[in-house]
């Protein structure tokens, strides 16, 4: 009994880490990419999913909630078609979902909107965004948020633990890994490896029920003025014919690689 009370008191004292995960909605990876008049992305028949790098981050955040009592909010900058994805986030354990109601046109704008949101809230200790999104591959949302808030930033993150308000992180670098220590608050760019593929959560019935009772809080956008504009898209030129080589004639392959295309 006495022990229990002690435990409880100790538990009360532990600081609850507040996590915000930025969620981008991107075309499913199997999508064929098309444009109307080479001007606009054609989303006809395209299924949108949570950007995979964001989902790895969200899953780690939920882990922090389950293991260390963290709170997890999610935010998306986008239009109502993102609500389905935000509901999924709630169903797998996020506490609150927010959406800034405006079409996301580039990474800097998304970062600006998210910073406005963060400033309107009290504070987050840990802000997670995918290392890059699989649509524009911009890789700048997390970095811009960090820089504008003057928080430290670690991207390509494949390991994240929090102990006594200190984050221990692993950053994947070309040809290795870097082990990093940093005080909270911090911004993290998440990617595969932060959690295993098999750790990704599929909403269960209970989660879906809980999520259906929660509201997505929709916020108005700020007056962002863009410093860039995509003026057109282009698809890579069609592939030329493949040359087949008989498995009994590997000399031909070696000869081509050495003398014709000169790559070995």
């Amino acid at each position: 009994m006495c022990y229990n009370i002690k435990c409880f008191i100790k538990f009360e004292k532990i600081y609850v880490v507040k996590v915000l995960v930025c969620i981008n909605s991107v075309p499913d990876t199997t999508s064929k990419i098309n444009f109307t008049d080479n001007k606009e992305y054609d989303s006809t028949n395209i299924q949108f999913v949570i950007n995979p790098n964001d989902e790895f981050g969200l899953t780690r955040a939920i882990w922090l909630k389950e293991k260390q009592n963290a709170t997890v909010d999610v935010i998306n900058v986008g239009q109502s078609q993102s609500d389905k994805l935000l509901k999924k986030c709630l169903a797998i354990g996020a506490d609150n979902a927010y959406r800034v109601n405006i079409e996301a046109i580039n990474g800097e704008m998304v970062a600006d909107e998210i910073i406005n949101f963060i400033k309107s809230k009290n504070h987050y200790d840990l802000i997670i965004a995918g290392r890059e999104s699989i649509d524009y591959n911009g890789g700048m949302v997390a970095g811009f948020i960090a820089s504008k808030l003057n928080f430290p930033f670690v991207t390509n993150c494949v390991g994240l633990k929090i102990e006594n308000n200190i984050a221990y992180l692993t950053r994947e670098i070309d040809g290795g890994r870097e082990n990093i220590k940093c005080n909270l608050p911090i911004v993290v760019g998440s990617q595969k490896g932060l959690v295993e593929e098999s750790d990704l959560k599929i909403p269960n019935m209970r989660g879906i029920m809980l999520a259906s009772k929660k509201e997505i809080k929709v916020l108005g956008p700020s007056k962002y003025v863009s410093s860039s504009k995509i003026i057109r898209f282009e698809k890579p030129s069609e592939k030329k014919e493949i040359k087949m080589i008989s498995p009994d004639n590997l000399d031909e392959l070696i000869d081509i690689l050495q003398n014709k295309v000169k790559v070995i």
């Binding site: 699989i134 860039s228 995509i230 898209f233 282009e234 698809k235």
Partner: peptide, 20 residues
């Protein structure tokens, strides 16, 4: 100033005009 960038993981290219 217009840059050509690969996007959609190499499935397309975009041309972006930059005003900064």
């Amino acid at each position: 100033f217009v840059v050509k960038q690969s996007c959609y993981t190499n499935k397309a290219f975009s041309y972006t005009e930059i005003y900064k």
